[in-house]
């Protein structure tokens, strides 16, 4: 993935965010252009949140939960 692309990753704190933590513990790398946003639950995601990310300049949005 190009590092020029800004990606917002909405991650559930109970699974995907914990997995990202574990990946960090394992010294696995991911592009710095990925911005991780922790959510209590990805059930919180709705169209408005995704639109706000795009409006704020994101090229892509990832929802992981």
């Amino acid at each position: 993935m190009s590092e020029d692309l800004q990606v917002v990753a909405f991650c559930c704190q109970h699974c995907a965010y914990a997995a990202a933590d574990l990946a960090g513990g394992l010294r696995l790398q991911y592009p710095p252009s990925v911005r991780v946003v922790m959510l209590p639950c990805t059930g919180k995601i709705d169209a408005l949140l995704v639109l706000q990310a795009f409006e704020s300049g994101a090229d892509g949005v990832m929802v992981a939960g």
């Binding site: 709705d46 169209a47 408005l48 639109l51 706000q52 795009f54 409006e55």
Partner: peptide, 13 residues
């Protein structure tokens, strides 16, 4: 309120 915010965002973008 939710639809108004979404339509506003869609129009802006």
């Amino acid at each position: 309120a939710r639809e108004a915010a979404i339509v506003a965002a869609e129009l802006r973008m």
